[in-house]
């Protein structure tokens, strides 16, 4: 009966996810609107971003989402060990993202870029940093879930918590999949 429950996970997290998506959507809309009015400025400064790093990060997050899917599949089969392993693998991919993104920030900050530098950097830093914090929060949530899995806290019958954490992580991934083309690729 659990397996067909919809939406997966706790309903409360979906309220939170919807609110977060609303915030991101508003920010994306604002970005697109402002970009239309300042195409040249945006094009110019978009060139200063490291597309390769962002592509690597995109792959890292997609991979992590896949790992999370495997984790949920394992717990549905009552395989706590497998579930735990996949979750930590996903967290490791998240950590990879943080390191790469941190490197990008270090590069920008050493060049003296701040939120007040110009409109493009304001949006770039606001959007990516807001997302960056979400990755960290997502990792904290996945770690909490993984620890509880390790203690045998979930089973094939009762694993709402795993689904809840997975849902949140997919949201973080989804937002990046919009962020990446919007800020790095689209010119």
């Amino acid at each position: 009966m659990q397996k067909n429950k919809y939406p997966p996970g706790d309903l409360a997290i979906w309220i939170f996810i919807l609110a977060e998506l609303l915030v991101f959507a508003a920010f994306f809309g604002a970005y697109a609107f402002t970009r239309l009015k300042n195409v040249e400025l945006f094009n110019y400064y978009q060139m200063t971003l490291d597309r390769n790093a962002a592509l690597l990060n995109t792959l890292a997050l997609i991979t992590s989402s896949y790992f999370v899917v495997r984790a949920v599949a394992d717990i549905r089969e009552d395989d706590s060990k497998g579930c735990k392993r996949w979750l930590w693998a996903a967290i490791a991919m998240g950590a990879f993202f943080i390191v790469i993104k941190g490197g990008e920030y270090a590069h920008h900050f050493s060049a003296g870029v701040t939120l007040s530098s110009n409109t493009f950097y304001m949006f770039y830093l606001s959007l990516t940093f807001f997302h960056f914090m979400h990755v960290i929060l997502g990792m904290v949530i996945l770690a909490a879930v993984a620890l509880k899995v390790g203690r045998g806290g979930y089973s094939a019958d009762e694993h709402t918590g795993v689904e809840t954490g997975a849902s949140y992580w997919h949201m973080v991934d989804l937002v990046w999949l919009i962020l990446f083309p919007l800020i790095y690729v689209m010119r």
Binding site: K5, L11, A12, I13
Partner: peptide, 11 residues
Amino acid sequence: QAFTKAMARNI
């Protein structure tokens, strides 16, 4: 439960 108090608290 579909919507638990513990989850609301965590959020």
